[in-house]
Amino acid sequence: MKTLACITLAMAATVLGHAPAALAVEEDPEAIAGATDLGFYAQDFRSQVGMGARRAAPSARYRSSDGTSSYNCNNIVAGGERTIRYPFTVPDSRVLEWVRVWGVKGASTSDLTLSVQRTCMSPTQVNPTTSQLVGTTLTSTGGQFSTTLFAGNDVPDNFNCKYWLEVVFGSNATACAASHVDLRIYKMRIQTLMPDRLFRHGFRIQVPG
């Protein structure tokens, strides 16, 4: 099964559109074009533009001026909160495969730390347990990037748990960028898989994502 095969192959991130060969097994459009891999029929995509961000604090300064609804880090001096989050839900009967992020990381910008987090809390618990499923740090400064994180085919537990993508624009010791146009999040996208097609449109399709 393609998805399982990719587990061992694709922990690396693609940056600037140059996908490592291993990753191509998972996401190569050419492979999809063959239309012989029925696994793709079970995959769904859900995305949100950068302005869907939840800021960790009001001191996370931002602009969105280029019209793409991107979230542009505007902490152009030291200080201020640097974390934003994109919460999302994986419908039951699906598994979380990939989270992909598009953006701009220009010259002299802070490192961009991306991670997929999951927090769980049962009704008998009052303190949550938060786990990082996958994380990566982008250090490149080449401009537009597209990077992906493999979430390990995590099986959702919507009764107890919730996911989010966490984005950290460097540290507050320095400016995140010289200008807000230099460090942007265009959008994020989750890719989920229905492991068994027999269940498609069967169980739990009512769970929104």
């Binding site: 939840r54 009001p58 919460p87 839900t89 039951d92």
Partner: peptide
């Protein structure tokens, strides 16, 4: 089924809300 939202997903009813959040919780 269930629908949930974490605390940090909220936004102020007005923009004057001063708040902080936690990743761990």
């Amino acid at each position: 089924g269930w629908v949930s939202a974490l605390g940090f997903e909220m936004r102020g009813r007005n923009s004057t809300l001063e708040y902080a959040t936690s990743t761990a919780a």
